[in-house]
């Protein structure tokens, strides 16, 4: 099976700060892969480097067999799309949902925009009643659904998810996670998902990589994690933390 995303020795340097220190990774086509770590671990930077939003100092990124240069072309964005963490910041404040969804179609010259927008809204469970609302007329969960619809409307094969539910309430999080699983199954998407929450990553992903301080700590399968078969202390710490507070007295 070919790799959807192959990353080799990736370094990202902001000014003089090394955010990623030679990380390698392979995500198989159709797989859901998780990146786990705390703030400053470089997990989001890795995602942004793939999307072309972070300065790559060295190393290579290959997407669907094509090696990426410093600039991404339009064809790349039809393969790879991203959903951001903050649903309040990722939608333009002066545009209706309709306008937000039309933009990618206009950029890529799709003719059947009307139909696609309808379909995209239906797919994320919003329906046409939401089509002409501004983002301030939507709740956090609805905004994130719009962001997902926007990412899907170009029919990409790879979706980059940057903590897509961390700003949402638990009950809304469940709905959005279910939606993501459903679209992945239906469209046979490849997911690369970033989260600080081990439980979410084990729920969503088959394999995962634990990161710390810009480096990979450990590669695991979800099953290994569930069985607590981890080798690194750091991963064990994260696992313990995910089980809630334990009083030591």
């Amino acid at each position: 099976m070919t790799a959807a995303i192959a990353i080799d020795g990736l370094e990202v340097i902001f000014d003089r700060f090394r955010a990623l220190k030679g990380v390698s990774l392979e995500v198989r086509s159709g797989e859901s892969f998780g990146l786990v770590g705390e703030s400053g671990s470089g997990k989001s930077t890795l995602l942004r480097a793939i999307a072309g939003l972070a300065p790559v100092a060295s190393g290579s990124i290959t997407v669907n067999g094509k090696k990426l240069g410093p600039r991404r072309d339009k064809a790349f964005y039809r393969e790879v799309q991203m959903v951001f963490q903050d649903p309040y910041g990722s939608l333009h404040p002066r545009q209706t949902v309709d306008r937000l969804l039309q933009e990618p179609l206009a950029i890529h010259g799709f003719a059947d925009g009307e139909k696609r927008i309808q379909r995209a809204l239906d797919e994320v469970g919003l329906g046409s009643g939401f089509r002409f609302r501004y983002s301030h007329q939507l709740s956090g969960g609805q905004r994130q659904r719009v962001a997902i619809a926007r990412a899907l409307i170009l029919e990409p094969s790879i979706l980059l998810l940057d903590e897509p539910t961390s700003a949402l309430d638990a009950s809304v999080q469940a709905e959005v996670l279910n939606l993501l699983e459903e679209v992945r199954r239906r469209r046979k998407l490849t997911f690369l998902m970033v989260s600080h929450d081990l439980a979410i990553v084990t729920h969503m992903c088959e394999r995962l990589m634990v990161m710390q301080g810009g480096e990979a700590v450990e590669n695991l399968t979800a099953a290994q994690l569930v069985a607590h078969r981890v080798t690194e202390d750091y991963t064990r710490n994260l696992l313990r933390a995910s089980e809630g507070f334990v009083r030591t007295a």
């Binding site: 469940a174 459903e182 439980a199 084990t202 569930v226 696992l239």
Partner: peptide, 20 residues
Amino acid sequence: RGLLNCMPRIGFERHPLPVL
């Protein structure tokens, strides 16, 4: 109960997650 249920937990596979 819904709030307790809808969070993913390690070792409790539920697809899809129960929603409120």
